[in-house]
């Protein structure tokens, strides 16, 4: 069992990783990289199936255990199954006019199908409103959490003010009196926000970026060499 659950997976990881690295450096091996990439992409599509299956399993269990709120699990399952059904079978989708006799030949997400209807009138309003809600919470957080406790916090708040005002017409209203051609035009809020972004933000983000990249490169190396095996789960 150790071979199946440890040795072979580690071997697969190393080979797959080395293939990807080689394909970046040697044109001859680029085809290997292409195949590995294609296999990965197909697996990524299977991952959607796995995600759906997991959801099904989780909510079926919740219903069978009659846990609190199990009725909502029923709603999840019904929506999941109906979307899946109308999407996979392309219910109501218009066939491709070039091949009208093939039912499945039409566009999956084309407007007019039931699958499109689920997207347009359920998926779209729901997901976009969920994200829109964050505007309210960010306002509440601004009132409760942003405190000018020390110099660092003042810097953070000051920058936030410059960006918030400089990226709207408020900047023009507040500092529009500074002539655009004068020596102090850089102090106009809209120009100041550009300066802050291109100098201070770029410097800070670049350092974070280099740090993260070093971390990713070393973690990748550890994974390929079999030093980091955490992705294989416990027991090692």
């Amino acid at each position: 069992m150790q071979i199946l659950t440890r040795s072979i997976p580690l071997f697969i990881t190393a080979v797959a990783g080395i293939v990807m690295i080689l394909s970046a450096f040697f044109p001859y091996t680029s085809d290997w990289g292409k195949f590995a990439g294609q296999f990965f992409n197909i697996l990524a599509a299977f991952a959607f199936v796995l995600g759906g299956g997991n959801l099904l399993k989780l909510h079926l269990k919740k219903i069978s255990d009659q846990r609190p709120g199990w009725a909502y699990s029923g709603v999840v399952l019904v929506c999941f199954i109906v979307t899946l059904f109308v999407g996979l079978l392309k219910i109501g989708a218009y066939p491709n006019p070039t091949y009208p006799s093939v039912h499945f030949g039409g566009e999956t997400q084309g407007s007019g199908s039931m699958f499109w209807w689920f997207y347009e009138y359920a998926f779209k309003p729901l997901t976009s409103t969920m994200f829109a809600m964050l505007a309210f919470y960010v306002a509440s957080a601004a009132f409760r959490a942003f405190r000018a406790k020390n110099f660092e916090a003042i810097l953070l708040l000051g920058t936030a003010f410059v960006v918030l005002l400089g990226r709207t017409f408020a900047g023009v209203l507040a500092t529009g009196w500074i002539p655009p051609d004068s020596a102090f035009s850089g102090l106009r809020l809209e120009n100041l926000s550009v300066y802050v972004m291109q100098v201070f933000n770029t410097a800070g983000t670049r350092a974070i970026m280099i740090g993260i990249a070093l971390g990713i490169a070393s973690t990748s190396m550890k994974i390929l060499l079999g030093i980091d095996r955490s992705f294989l789960g416990s027991g090692d």
Partner: peptide
């Protein structure tokens, strides 16, 4: 209710798209 609908529809949506557009 709305939250449950979004979870169900999204999972179904991704699966369908993964199947028809990639698999």
């Amino acid at each position: 209710f709305a939250e449950s609908v979004v979870v169900g529809v999204s999972a179904g949506y991704w699966m369908v798209v993964g199947f028809w557009d990639t698999i």
